[in-house]
Every structure is written in C-alpha cells, then in structure tokens.
Design a binder for these strands. Structure first.
Length: 552
RNA sequence: UGGGGUGUCGCCAAGUGGCAAGGCAGCGGGUUUUGAUCCCGCCAUUCGCAGGUUCGAAUCCUGCCACCCCAGCCA
C-alpha cells in the first residue's frame, strides 16, 4: 500500500487481518443489483472495493446480486459493466451472478430445513407484518413455526416445483421472534415468484432474498471482506447466523461504511426516474445527472471521480460532501490534462485595419506541458472576440479591450481599439482596431503594456458551434428533502447557444475529448451529438472566477 | 421511548493517553500572454455537553444530549 494514502478504518482493519494471517489475500466485491444505472454513490463503493484490492495486491469481483428478477434487466447489467470499466477498474475473473448459485442456495435451504432451522410459513403479508411485532414490542411465533422437518421439506420441494401461487408461502429461518433486532425475527429466505429471470430464464419459481443470498455468495467466492453500507449493519448478525449454520467453504466478514452523499445532488432512484420521466432532463445520461453515464457525458474524467472518492475518505459517520470538492477534483485533473483552445461564445467582430495577409500562428496546446504539442491557429484581419470583452469606456479594473486602450489577443498580437460602429439599438456592432507591430511574443516597443489578455477566433476561419452550458440541477443543497423535487430544479440548469465560434482545429475533436476553452472553462465534445459538420460541446465545469464573483 | 450506529474547523477527514495532519471552501499577498494555473501566508488553546481517572485525555470511565438506520415476500 502506498504510504501517501490516508488511513481509514477499512485499511487499518485489512492491514491487521493480513498481518495477523487472518487472511492471505484480500478479496473484495462490488455487488450491484442490476436494477438501475450507477451513480456517484456507486462510484464511491466501486472505488472503495476495487481500490482496496489494488492497494493491497488483492482481487475484486464484479457480482450482480440478481435475486429479484422483476426489477432487473440485461440493459442494466450491460450499463453497469460499461460504467465500472469506464471508471478504470477491471474485475477479477468473469462477471459473477448470484443466480449462478441458486442451486447451491436451494440445497443449503434444505440443509436448514433438515436441521430444524427453517420452516415453510403460510402467513399472508399482512398477517406476517402483524406477527412481526414492532420496534418496541416482540413478535409472535407463526402458527406454522412448528411444522416438522419432513413436512417442511415436502412443502419447500413443492414450492420449488412451482406448486404454489406467488406469495402463497415462504421459507423462513427459525431464529427468534422476540429478538430486539427485527432482522432476526424469523427472516424470509425464499419467496414464490413465477417470474422470468434474465439469467436463469424460467428455471426457478422461487427466489432467495438478499439476506439468504449475500453472505453465501461471499462465501462461495472466497470474499474476505464484504464491504457494504451502514444500513446493512443490523443484518450482520443474520449474515453471520447463516455462515454459522451452513457448511460454507469460507468465512467472509461484513464491514460497513457510510455511503457518499453530495450536496446539490440526489441519488434516489425514485427521484432520478422522476427527473427523466418528467422530461426535466434528457435521459439517464443527461450531463446534469449524477449517474456515471451523466458525469461521463458531462466530461468529468474517470480519474477525477476516482480521486474525489479517495479524497473524501471513508468513515462510518453520516456526512454530506460539498459538491465543490468534486468540482475541484475535476478542475485539478483537467487543468493538467486538457489541451487549450479558443471559443468565442458571444461574437463581436473586430476589424484590424492594419492587417492584410492571413497568417498561421503556432500555439502551444498547454501553457506548462510542452509534451502536449502545438497547433496551428489562423489569424486574419477580422477576428471575433466576446461582446463581454469590449467596452467603449471602463474603469481601471476592467482588463479587457476599451476604446483607445490596448489588450493582448491570446497567443497573438497586442491590439489597440480606435473606434466602433453601433446598430440601430445602440449596441456595439463592430470594433475597429490596429495591431501593434512586433508584439507577437514580445511586449510593445513603446513600453505601453496591454491591460489584459482576451481570447479570439479568426472570423473567416472560425466555425460555428453549439455550446451547452450546464449549471447545478438543483437550487438547494439537499433537494431530496424537498416535498416536491421538481420545484427546486434550477430552471437555468441548461443554456444552449448556437452562435458560438470555435477555432477550426476544434472541428476534429474526438468524441468525449475535453478542452479548456481559454478564460471560459472546460468543454467536452459531446459523446453522441458532436461531429465535424455540427460541432457540439458541453460545459464540463467553468474556471474558478474571482472576477465573476466580485463583479466590476 | 426496543436494537444498532455516529458526533474533531463552514464541508469532508486523520488522530487509538504525551503539545489538534491534510483536502475543499474562505481570506490576504506575489507571479502570470487564461481575472485560470502556480507560489506564499492566514484559517480549531480545542475535539457534542457535564463530571471523573491521570503528571498528562479528542483518545480511558460515568452520565446526559443530538442526529442517522431497522417493523419489504426490496437490496
């Protein structure tokens, strides 16, 4: 394990287990149920499980916990595998399925029955709820609790054979209806469900519950540390009860950690679905969505997401991480890796009255990383600059182009504005300026330095592009707490402009390539919509902007 | 108020009896052909509260308080 990694209770525990010889090799697993798309919270779990295995030279399995077929589908299985791989992790061996172990689970259920530790119960859902008691009152024994092992075996075999209707009977563990831990009040092991399963087809009319499956899955796979979230803590005694009572080949151990919560973000499947169904967002991979697919389409690099998950740490205390921390990780990564380019969002023409021939300038792709190379940027007598970068007059704090003043065109010449035209509404329509000779890579010879630097694009060579500006999806830090989530959706979370102009080299941007548009932010060539014929870039994240916060 | 957890800076989070790491955010200043980056500095005499043990306590003990999870044939 590299020493720069922050210590946490998981690493300490694993280190101790390895040192004391409790385990020889760390084996973890990421066990999603394929019933939806993965989101940022899953990214944390993935980073924890795969990351730990990597750091300790162990292995991590990808296992689909597919014990409830009605909610699951192949579509989700595919997307989950794609997301895990995109995040940069590789699972050990083949993808695993809980459903591969159904026969073993069935035999183990018979084992419990024969040992008098499980029984078939005919109580209805409502009756069972009543018999379960409450948080403060003990439950009562089911009238079917004392059926003989022989009768239970017969009934359970009939359940398996498909003799009963959905919900007619269940198999329950015989533990303790008075346990203060409700999970131990004769939990259900199997339910009758005549449902088609995406992996096992129609082979099974009964399906095991999470509790009866998970620990045994871990045991079969030789998982040493079964890491899950805090809400399963109360299930641990049950997890261990099964391992105690069954002839399992291995003894895994469950350890819980606090799930990741991020401010201004919602990860509830119900709400995410609501956003999609209401048309609030364009789909599960809308760049505003906290899904892995959404973050990806937004241009958030996998490495930045992983780094963020590592940075926030892993503990057992409930917390809400400021989403600014995720954004910071994204900016940090992109600052180092994204090539620079220029894009004018709101074009204003500048005529350079003393420029005649067009020339090709060679600009560095990155200000401090020469290995990223250079590119050709055409410079002409007419260039576009952003409307925000010109004022007829301004105070000293304004570091852009002003009539009678100078500014540097990024990577090109210093220019001085002489005059401008207005349209019928009085708006500036065109600026006339001159380049100061010999200022390519040099300060003006007369010693009058420009106030600032602005980005630009050659008017004849620039290409129109669609730019999608994204902002936070919600206006409040904890949207899930709102009665009506849709009412706290940020109406301005997407602003699409079609009149932006990009430098020509950008037309050939590869799908999903992220650039820093200088002085604007990081933008990604849309995974699906971008093409040379119709360039489309999504705002990944803006640059930090002290000026923008202060105003002028 | 049954059981299980958690409380260290605005937000995360190390720390496991010997002078309270780090990151994010924020605030100053410097560099800069991105108002970015980068660099420098500031930012918890105090660890939910109250007692106690100890030469010494965020760390040990006792008692409180607050918040989270559990009563699916979901996971």
């Amino acid at each position: 394990m590299s020493s720069e990694l922050r210590s946490n209770f998981l690493r300490s525990q694993i280190q101790a287990d390895l040192k004391q010889g409790n385990v020889n090799e760390l084996v973890t697993r990421f066990p999603p149920e394929p019933n939806g798309y993965l989101h940022i919270g899953h990214a944390k779990s993935i980073t924890v499980n795969f990351g730990l295995a990597e750091q300790f030279g162990g292995r991590c399995h990808l296992r689909f916990d597919d014990t409830n077929p009605e909610k699951e589908s192949q579509e989700y299985i595919d997307s989950i595998q794609e997301d895990v791989q995109w995040l940069g992790f590789r699972w050990s061996g083949d993808v695993r399925y809980a459903s591969s172990y159904f026969q073993q689970f069935y035999e183990w259920a018979l084992h419990l029955i024969d040992a008098g530790l499980a029984y078939v119960c005919d109580l209805t859902v409502e009756e069972a709820r009543d018999y379960r008691g409450s948080l403060t009152e003990p439950g009562r024994n089911s009238p079917y609790r004392e059926r003989s092992p022989v009768e239970n075996r017969d009934l359970f075999e009939q359940m398996r054979a498909g003799a009963f209707e959905d919900g007619a009977r269940v198999l329950r563990a015989k533990i303790d209806m008075a346990s203060p831990n409700i999970n131990l009040r004769d939990p259900i092991l199997y339910r009758v469900r005549h449902a088609h399963h995406h992996q096992t087809g129609d082979a099974w009319p009964i399906y095991p519950t999470y509790d009866f499956a998970h620990g045994q899955e871990d045991a079969i796979e030789g998982i040493t540390h079964s890491i899950c979230t805090l809400e399963f803590e109360d299930h641990r005694p049950l997890y261990e009860w099964f391992l105690d009572k069954l002839p399992v080949p291995h003894r895994p151990r469950q350890i819980e950690f606090a799930r990741l919560n991020t401010s201004y973000t919602v990860t509830s499947k119900r709400i995410l679905k609501q956003l999609v169904d209401s048309g609030t967002v364009a789909g599960w991979d809308d760049p505003r969505m906290p899904t892995i697919a959404g973050l990806r389409r937004r241009g958030y690099p996998a490495a930045a997401i992983r780094h963020f998950c590592e940075e926030v740490g892993t503990s057992r205390s409930d917390s809400v991480v400021d989403v600014a921390m995720l954004e910071s990780a994204v900016r940090d990564h992109l600052n180092h890796h994204a090539p620079r380019a220029m894009c004018v969002m709101d074009p204003l023409k500048v005529v350079l009255t003393n420029v005649e021939a067009e020339e090709q300038l060679t600009l560095a792709n990155h200000p401090s990383d020469a290995s990223q190379g250079t590119r050709l940027v055409p410079f002409s007598s007419e260039v576009w600059i952003d409307k925000e970068d010109f004022r007829e007059e301004a105070n000293k704090k304004y570091k852009r182009l002003v009539l009678g003043k100078r500014v540097r065109l990024r990577g090109a010449y210093v220019i001085e504005a002489d005059s401008c035209d207005h349209n019928e509404r009085g708006e500036v329509e065109c600026v006339y300026a001159r380049i100061i000779p010999k200022t390519l890579g040099e300060d003006p010879e007369d010693g009058v330095k420009p106030k600032g630097v602005i980005h630009w694009v050659s008017a004849p060579a620039g290409v129109k592009a669609t730019i999608r500006h994204y902002d936070r999806l919600f206006t409040v830090p904890n949207p899930a707490k709102s009665d009506d989530v849709l009412s706290v959706v940020n109406a301005a979370s997407l602003r699409e402009i079609h009149s932006a102009v990009i430098e020509p080299a950008l037309v050939n941007a590869a799908s999903e390539a992220v650039f820093q548009f200088e002085r604007e932010g990081y933008f990604v060539a849309d995974r699906y919509d971008h093409s040379a014929a119709r360039p489309v870039f999504n705002l990944t994240i803006g640059l930090r902007d002290v000026w923008g916060q202060q105003g002028d």
